[in-house]
């Protein structure tokens, strides 16, 4: 079960998000996160969907997305090098005596304190998902009062054109079991 980042260019029309979300629900696919935003062209929006599943499932997700009329382009970014970012806003319990300690932690992760109250602070942090998750774990002992994440957005790296880094997806095996065959390797069929 691999994590996949799928970038979907869609027509900027009402109902497109519902259509895509509905397709995922109806076919039993997972959505870990889904981000929608405008692109450089007002006619199109981009969705970045993070989903986990085996190779055949992801192949189906790509194909089913491609079938939706308002979907213009589907790209699985996990087959290639890409820059991915998640944005975290976290409000942490923080009495005055803990401020410097949390400030230091924040510096290590290159986050920034964006609001300070008498008993808590709000920290902003961007980065790939694992970095965000590590930081959240470190904040937990202080007491998390509120947390919000955007989910991953991603674009392919500019520098990967020379080497088609995309690895061919593993070939799916035909589903077969031994029970269909006798020891001699032939089916149990009526005698001819």
């Amino acid at each position: 079960m691999k994590k996949h980042i799928i970038s979907v260019l869609v027509q900027n029309q009402p109902g497109v998000l519902a259509h895509i979300a509905g397709m995922f629900a109806a076919r039993g696919f997972n959505i870990d996160s889904l981000v929608v935003g405008r692109t450089e062209d007002p006619e199109f929006s981009r969705m970045v969907i993070v989903s986990t599943g085996d190779a055949p499932t992801l192949e189906q997700i790509r194909k089913q997305l491609g079938k939706i009329v308002t979907v213009v382009k589907v790209r699985d970014l996990s087959d290639q090098k890409c820059v991915e970012r998640d944005l975290l806003l976290i409000q942490v319990h923080c009495p005055p005596e803990k401020r410097s300690e949390l400030g230091h932690l924040c510096e290590v992760f290159r986050g920034s304190i964006v609001d300070v109250g008498p008993r808590s602070i709000v920290i902003q942090l961007t980065g790939p998902e694992d970095k965000i998750e590590a930081f959240v774990e470190l904040c937990r002992p202080y007491g998390i009062k509120a947390l919000s994440r955007t989910g991953v957005i991603a674009v392919p790296r500019a520098s990967q054109t020379e080497n088609g880094s995309a690895e061919a997806p593993p070939r799916r095996k035909r589903i077969r079991t031994a029970t269909a065959t006798t020891p001699s390797g032939t089916l149990v069929l009526p005698p001819s």
């Binding site: 055949p56 192949e59 189906q60 194909k63 089913q64 491609g66 079938k67 799916r172 095996k173 035909r174 589903i175 077969r176 079991t177 029970t179 269909a180 065959t181 089916l187």
Partner: peptide, 26 residues
């Protein structure tokens, strides 16, 4: 039963809908 469907056959699948291909049977 999918596991034992056409167990000796090489399968060629001609279809206009790519999502039909390798959906149930590889």
């Amino acid at each position: 039963k999918l596991e034992t469907f056409a167990p000796h056959a090489k399968i060629i699948h001609i279809d206009v809908d790519p999502s039909s291909i390798s959906k149930n049977v590889d």
